[in-house]
Amino acid sequence: MSPEPSATRLRASDLSDHSDEVEGPLCGYHHETYAFSLSAEAGADKKGRWKIREPREELLWFDRRCFTSEYELLYQLRRRIDVIPEVAPVGGVDLQRFVEGVTLGERYPSGEAVSGEVVEQILKLFRQLIAVTSDTLPVERKCDPEDRADEGDSAGFLERLIRFTQKRVYGQNLPEYEDLFTDLGLGLNSFEYLRKHVDGLTSRPFCLLHADLHRENFILDSAGKVWAIDWELAMLGDPLYDLATHLHLMRYPVQQEREIIRRWCVIAEDVRKGSSKGWIEDLPRLLDYKKAQSVFTDVIRETQSLVGTEGFAHRRLREASSKVRDVLWAAAEPLGLASRPSLLEIEAALLRWGDREPEPAQP
Rank of each mutant, 00 (worst) to 15 (best):
A35G: 11
G105W: 11
E57L: 01
A331T: 01
L158P: 01
P138V: 04
Q76Y: 05
E32G: 00
D282F: 09
S342E: 10
E54G: 02
Y29P: 01
H246V: 00
Q166A: 07
S321E: 09
D282H: 03
A42T: 01
G224S: 05
E232P: 13
D221F: 06
R141K: 14
A338T: 14
R318C: 06
T182F: 15
E32C: 03
P341Y: 07
Y241E: 01
G311R: 05
A349Y: 09
E21K: 13
A42C: 04
G28C: 13
S2V: 13
S13G: 05
L213V: 02
Y34W: 14
W264P: 03
L209K: 03
A7T: 12
W227Y: 12
T133R: 14
S321P: 04
T309C: 00
G171H: 10
I84Q: 00
H197K: 06
E269I: 04
A234L: 02
I267G: 05
Y252L: 15
T245V: 14
G116S: 08
Y241Q: 02
P25R: 03
P363A: 12
I261S: 04
G48I: 01
S294G: 04
I260T: 05
F126L: 03
F62C: 02
S16E: 01
R204K: 09
W353Q: 02
K273M: 06
S294P: 01
W353M: 03
E159K: 01
S222V: 11
R258L: 12
H18C: 08
P358A: 09
Y252K: 03
L60F: 10
